[in-house]
Simulated scan of single mutants.
Amino acid sequence: MKLVIIEPLGVEKETLLEIADKAVGRDTEIVYYDTRVTDDATLIERGKDADIIVVANLPLNETVIDGCKNLKLLAVAFTGIDHIAVEACRKRNITICNCAGYSNAAVSDLVFGLLINLYRNIIPCNEVVRKSGTKDGLVGFELEGKKFGVIGTGAIGSRVAAIAQAFGCEVYAYSRTRKDLPGVTWMELGELLETCDIISLHVPLNEKTRGMIGEAELAKMKPGAVLINTARGPVVDSAALAKALNDGQIAGAAVDVFETEPPVPEDHPLLHAKNLIATPHVAFATKEALIKRAIIDFDNVRKYLDGTPQNVM
């Protein structure tokens, strides 16, 4: 059995290979690539003899999948799999496993880091104090007492809801599936957008969520409201969000995700919008989370080899 780690996973090589060897080394030849490439030909060359490919958020299209003739398992070191040609895998009965849960703490932390930056003007404050300025015009807001809306209440959304309550927020939620979340009031999407001071997105990307926050939805939000997107870029219409920010329709936004993986084009509309904080899809990326991810991913491989696959998508 040949396993190819087709791109770096954000963990030091020695540590990563130790995790891999501990999980599957006795049964598997492990090949590690420490560079990230995106052209089909090189990816096919790397994966053509692999029975198992370990990949993070590197796009693998149908051409690449079909070029990897021996492929039986894609061990995706990520939560979402929208960068994988899923239908091509299904046609060939290739199993796909993901790493749900590894970044729950990391993403939740960044939500509040971004939000507090927006509410307390931390970035402008840092800039002005370096220019001998004062707090004039930079007085911010408290989280306590604000109406906090969570869209999508999976593991991360539920954690965000609990943290928001710890800050003293009133928490509201909208999700396709409702669950028992203490202290959370459920609303339909339109009502939540109209009610809340803060909207935080935590939905996967699929045909139902693509573009779910567009011009009409942004128009329902309060003028003083802010939007946080650490989910997936295409969940939000970027042009509509940029316009809403530039027109003062909403007060601010923070985005960690875009339509494509960074680097983001310099002419992207959100990079020229007012009152916006942008980060380069870093929410999941903490030292701790990347170790958790590697452990889960190779445990997925081990379980697959044992005939008891887990985290199958």
Score class of each variant (00 low, 15 high):
3 L>R: 05
3 L>D: 03
11 V>M: 14
14 E>I: 05
19 I>E: 03
21 D>E: 14
23 A>H: 14
29 E>T: 08
36 R>I: 05
39 D>E: 15
44 I>E: 07
46 R>K: 12
46 R>I: 09
47 G>H: 05
49 D>Q: 14
50 A>Y: 10
54 V>P: 09
56 A>K: 06
56 A>I: 00
64 V>C: 02
65 I>Y: 04
66 D>C: 07
68 C>F: 00
70 N>R: 13
74 L>E: 03
74 L>S: 01
77 A>G: 14
77 A>W: 04
82 D>R: 06
82 D>C: 08
86 V>E: 12
87 E>F: 02
93 N>M: 08
95 T>W: 13
95 T>A: 14
95 T>Q: 13
97 C>Y: 10
101 G>E: 07
107 V>H: 01
109 D>T: 14
111 V>W: 03
115 L>F: 00
116 I>P: 00
117 N>S: 15
120 R>H: 12
121 N>A: 02
123 I>L: 15
131 K>Y: 05
131 K>W: 01
131 K>T: 10
133 G>P: 12
137 G>C: 09
141 F>P: 00
150 V>L: 03
152 G>Y: 11
155 A>H: 14
155 A>D: 13
163 I>T: 13
167 F>H: 10
168 G>I: 12
169 C>W: 14
173 A>K: 11
174 Y>P: 00
175 S>T: 11
177 T>E: 10
180 D>T: 12
182 P>R: 07
190 G>M: 09
197 D>G: 02
198 I>F: 06
209 T>A: 03
209 T>C: 02
214 G>P: 10
214 G>V: 06
219 A>Y: 11
222 K>I: 01
223 P>K: 12
224 G>D: 11
225 A>G: 02
226 V>K: 04
228 I>W: 05
229 N>A: 00
231 A>W: 01
233 G>Q: 05
236 V>K: 06
240 A>Q: 09
241 L>Q: 08
241 L>H: 10
247 D>M: 06
248 G>T: 12
251 A>H: 07
252 G>E: 08
253 A>G: 09
256 D>V: 01
259 E>F: 13
261 E>T: 00
261 E>G: 00
262 P>A: 00
262 P>K: 01
263 P>I: 03
264 V>K: 10
267 D>W: 09
272 H>L: 12
276 L>K: 04
279 T>V: 06
281 H>L: 02
283 A>Q: 08
284 F>M: 12
286 T>G: 07
287 K>R: 15
290 L>D: 04
291 I>P: 04
293 R>M: 15
295 I>Q: 15
299 D>R: 15
301 V>G: 08
302 R>P: 04
308 T>E: 14
308 T>A: 13
311 N>R: 14
